[in-house]
Design a protein around this nucleic acid. Sequence first.
DNA 1: CCTCTATTTAGCTAAATAGTAAAATATGAA
DNA 2: TTCATATTTTACTATTTAGCTAAATAGAGG
Lengths: 119, 119
Amino acid sequence: MLDALSQTFAALADPTRRAILQRLSSGEATVGELAEPFDLSLATVSKHLKVLQHARLVSQTRNAQWRPCRLEVAALREIDGWMDQYRRFWAGSFERLDDYLEAVQAGEGNSGDDDQNPD
Amino acid sequence: MLDALSQTFAALADPTRRAILQRLSSGEATVGELAEPFDLSLATVSKHLKVLQHARLVSQTRNAQWRPCRLEVAALREIDGWMDQYRRFWAGSFERLDDYLEAVQAGEGNSGDDDQNPD
DNA sequence: CCTCTATTTAGCTAAATAGTAAAATATGAA
DNA sequence: TTCATATTTTACTATTTAGCTAAATAGAGG
């Protein structure tokens, strides 16, 4: 079994699942409502939802015979947190990593090969 | 073939590949250097690098018989851009989506077909 | 009970992919 | 040319997964 972050990324690596998340970002929806815009069987959408639930991106409650789904943002926040370590590469004016590294290395007075750690 | 965003998410859905990216965030590295911390064959790491290149997360140049790899942040920025539509859910004080939606709906009135009682 | 609606599960196929070992390729050096 | 090093490519296997249809499950209501 993969770690939580990998599961979340894997769940997001499918356009249908991302569309489901987008739909859920405007409110709860039942499985049937979520399936409606897609040319897919309900069983397939149900499986997509199971993947999303397993990745903790969606939760499902029960209301009579409906299972309303809801977006859960905790896993998305984890992705966002993971991205933090890379944001410095575009937070400033650095388009390319080597520009950044060259700038850092020039600032440190090191002209060596490539093992400088900018952090 | 999947769209670019799906490919990027799929590439990130592997701990080895994320570790490779992290290593590259501190500077260029050859395939052998990247493979060193892993208990994987060079061929396997080479394939991971191909996935990362295909997702445009890594570029590879040539230096004699070495192929130094470099982090490319454009695809990460795309992920970051995709996340924008969800940041509002944790940018403020909203821990739970339903709190946010209740607040919004209370302000806007009811939109119609999703008014099952939430609890 | 039975029926209707909503959803999930089971069983299948096809495609993708992570891993391997071994052969092939590319470059530098002797 | 030959050898050594670095990396990729080529089969091949095993696992995962997106999709389907059909059957099963769950609740509402007659």
